[in-house]
Design a protein around this nucleic acid. Structure first.
Lengths: 342, 342
DNA sequence: CAAATTCACTAAATCGATTTAGTAAAAAAC
DNA sequence: GTTTTTTACTAAATCGATTTAGTGAATTTG
């Protein structure tokens, strides 16, 4: 029971496959195929359960209606929500999505980009790892629609959508300061990417503006693939000996850090927010039912995802235009819960 | 700067594209192409940065090296982790994955299956929503490798991989009983699918085996797309008036229910586990840093994902064999934390 | 040394669509 | 009543690979 092709329909009716193609593409009128034949073609197509072969279509037209997505890890709810939104918005326009998790590894992302090129995807949405500048540059040269999300390379002229990380970290740190915290630490991840760098900058600026000292020893950079133990060690170093607290608040730059951090803090017998206050980027479920629900920097993930697809679709819809490069920065909002005290 | 094709390489060297194809597919020896020419072809391919057009390849060979994946929601960490594992295992064998979130909606899954058929995917991994029996049946008839995950339809002969949900719920309920809880509620979701039904059955059996009454009013079935409020209402009904507790423990059949439930319980001023004990299926991060870390039924997501891909690949590798249908049931483990008391 | 075999390659068909160029018959125009 | 235009279609090229069948030259065989 093999699949029905255009020719099958054509043979079935004794007409040419050209005609069938016209009719099924809604161009019956345009190519003045008689209403009678149009109707028959549609009937037979339904009867034989015709499903167009998108591969053949893709070869002929050069369009696959597919978007390639590279993110760090689809199992991470941050990217899960983003991916979901991208999938959904793409589907609205008839596009499918090939998902790739790069693990922030430029070797992997390089391979994945090559794979997506071979698959002839119509556009790319990428959250690029560090040291992937050359990959991105060569994609830009290929003139296939591309948008970077979450982070970008300032030196590369390319569409990107991200949030105002500086502002977000500034607001979060300020919130801690306003509540009387003075010894504020920053636990972050060494991605060497603008998004993380700006978070640290925003944190520092808030301290400076409040005339608080910036103590580099209170800034802990962990590798991307950190686990509980790494975070626990960082926190132990920060907290110091009991009775001689070096730190009274921590800003976590990702929820993965924050969740592990809170686990460690609790395991050490410290109470949030009394012994130590906590703010974190991202807004996972975990923070809602936490020992002390966590105050967070909430990112507009839906908007990032939706906009990314729209930028791609827009370029695909208007291929001739030379497009203005879209550099979109969205605002975050601070959701205040109980983890910073009052 | 358009892409390099086989013919470009052929022209560049003044040979036929047949030859180039042979060499690039590693069949140089087999078709006794001289070593000298082989070397040149490989050189030129690299020089021109040849990337095979997988679409053209797919059209000719009928193989796209693509697996279609349909799950309920990639933003749900349960499916996120599963998806991640599937992506990774598929990549090991040179397969890409098209992700689709069905929202447990059979209309959506129907469309997505049609889309995947048109995309000529080589295999399907599907977590089927209720009322999608006909879709699955017709896929089975198409003889394209297919494996169902998380749930399945007992009446359809088809590969599937899932966990022993009856046993899991039985163990979880038994754990509550062993700790002295007697009035145990079950909050679940009305998917009308074996996986959920078995969970409720396991729960009931544990009560029966302990000579505890099965009170249907303690079993709450919520719609799939529930929110905080739905769960809060269910819990209010279960708890009843203060001082007259109808329930002293709850088994949540999914983590989405559990997270919302714990939020509500806490909002009502009740303490876990003292006022009410809690066990839940699935093991999200949230449960680790919860008010009272949650005892859970942990599913072997990695194994489910990995095995699913292997079943598909195995059928693809041996297309001639009539394959034994694989019905795989994996064991869960109960991770005991603090939410049930002691 | 003619026939058979091996060697090193190539021509052309094919997959299933789209699309350009064209055609025979009918209708309209002059 | 011939020419032009319109109508309602079709043939064939094309996309970029794979693969079958074949070919001329060199080599081996008897």
């Amino acid at each position: 029971m093999k699949k029905t092709s255009l020719s099958d329909i054509a043979k079935h009716l004794g007409v040419s496959k050209t005609l069938v193609s016209f009719v099924l593409n809604g161009k019956g009128k345009e190519f003045r195929i008689s209403d009678e034949i149009c109707k028959k073609v549609l009937e037979v197509a339904k009867e034989l359960n015709y499903q167009p072969n998108r591969i053949a279509q893709g070869l002929r037209t050069g369009k696959t209606n597919t978007i390639g997505l590279i993110i760090a890890d689809i199992a991470n709810p941050f990217f899960g929500i983003l991916g979901r939104e991208i999938e959904q918005e793409a589907a609205r326009f008839g596009y499918r999505v090939i998902f790739c998790s790069s693990d922030e590894n430029p070797e992997k992302s390089k391979q994945q980009i090559a794979m997506l090129q071979q698959s002839q995807v119509d556009g790319y949405i990428i959250s690029p790892p560090k040291k992937s500048e050359d990959q991105i540059r060569s994609l830009v040269k290929s003139h296939i629609p591309l948008v970077l999300i979450d982070r970008y390379f300032p030196e590369i002229e390319c569409n990107h959508i991200s949030v105002d990380n500086f502002d977000a970290a500034y607001k979060a740190t300020n919130h801690l300061i306003a509540l009387g915290h003075k010894k504020i630490a920053n636990i972050t991840v060494n991605l060497d990417l603008v998004n993380m760098i700006e978070r640290t900058e925003g944190y520092k600026k808030a301290l400076l503006d409040a005339s608080l000292p910036v103590d580099e020893s209170l800034i802990k950079e962990l590798p991307f693939s950190h686990d509980n133990k790494d975070v626990a060690r960082a926190i132990k170093e920060l907290v110091g000996k009991p009775g001689n607290k070096k730190v009274d608040a921590i800003l976590f730059a990702t929820s993965k850090l924050g969740i592990n951090g809170i686990e460690s803090i609790t395991a050490m017998g410290l109470k949030i927010p009394d012994d130590i206050a906590v703010v974190s980027f991202d807004n996972p479920d975990a923070y809602k039912i936490c020992i002390s629900p966590v105050t967070v920097v909430n990112q507009p993930l839906k908007e990032i995802g939706k906009t990314a697809v729209q930028v791609i679709i827009n370029e695909l819809k208007h291929p001739d235009n030379i497009h203005k490069i879209q550099k979109i920065t969205l605002k975050t909002d601070l959701i205040i819960r109980k983890s910073c005290g009052s």
